[in-house]
């Protein structure tokens, strides 16, 4: 009730002002709370946006940073996969929740020629421009551990090479002298990034307890040359001749004992 000494209109005005102030403060705190949650989500998204090493995205997937902004987490690609290779990440799997991935060590991609998972994607997180599965770059196989690889130990395991769908293109065997025995050869599996799709068959098939060859995200698997680097033999092949003028380069002849 209003104070008898005060005009009712003053009390009303005061009450209205208080109510308006309260509403304003409630809105400000709501806005502040929302901003904090948004900030937390944004920071978390930046930290969690990297794909863990055991997981590989489906064929045609955009670069991970773009993928996470394009995939609506619907699962249509998973439903389209005829081999149940793809799965949707559940909360706690370590992959952004609701996004598709597979673990090559468990199930590898069968590289369907018609690529049904890509066709099923309604948003373009899996790029429909991919029409040839051999052009897919889901990741890159890396023979990561030379110490345990049986072929590096001089045995003829060859399993990764044999199961590769692009045998002799994506994986070749490089014959080297076995220095340990001095009388045998080693056949070293070599992965070629211009052909490897990252399907994961090699990692799946590796006979070791833990695979010596693993599919990694390409940006983690590949080095990158300095953009100003020129490889002399390539420049030479392109030009059809040596680009060095004759007799320009004189290298000092060093002899033992400091004399020249």
């Amino acid at each position: 009730m209003s104070d008898p000494g005060t005009l009712p209109s003053d009390a009303d005005a005061q009450r209205q002002a208080n109510a308006a102030r309260r509403r304003f403060l409630v809105q400000v705190s709501a806005a502040g709370g929302a901003a904090l949650i948004g900030l937390g989500l944004g920071v978390h998204a930046r930290q969690a946006a990297a794909l863990p090493a055991f997981a590989v995205r489906p064929p045609g997937a955009l670069h991970e940073a773009e993928f996470l902004g394009a995939c609506v987490r619907c699962g249509l690609c998973v439903r389209a996969c005829p081999y149940d290779t793809l799965k949707l990440s559940a909360l706690g799997d370590g992959v952004a929740p609701g996004t598709p991935y597979f673990e090559p060590r468990k199930v590898a991609c069968e590289m369907c020629p018609d690529i049904p998972c890509v066709k099923a994607c309604p948003t373009g997180a899996l790029d429909h421009a991919l029409e040839d599965i051999a052009a897919a770059r889901m990741g890159l196989a890396v023979l990561i551990d030379h110490e345990t690889c049986l072929n590096y130990n001089g045995l003829r395991c060859d399993v990764c090479y044999r199961v590769c769908p692009l045998i002799d293109k994506a994986i070749t065997l490089d014959m080297q002298r076995n220095a340990r025995t001095g009388m045998h050869a080693m056949f070293l599996p070599v992965v070629h990034s211009d052909a490897c799709t990252g399907c994961g068959k090699c990692e799946r098939a590796c006979v070791l307890e833990s695979a010596a060859i693993k599919v990694l995200p390409i940006e983690q698997a590949k080095g990158e040359l300095g953009h100003h680097y020129r490889l002399g033999w390539e420049e030479k092949a392109r030009a059809g001749r040596s680009l060095l003028p004759q007799d320009v380069l004189e290298l000092p002849v060093r002899r033992p004992g400091g004399g020249s």
């Binding site: 705190s29 709370g33 929302a34 948004g38 989500l41 944004g42 996470l68 995939c71």
Partner: peptide, 29 residues
Amino acid sequence: APSPALRYWLLGAILAASFASGTLAWEWI
């Protein structure tokens, strides 16, 4: 309970976070 208008602020914050992080920000939770 928080203000019923919080959800609209949250919607705006989520879209801002999506913009800043390049991901579907609310889909983490």
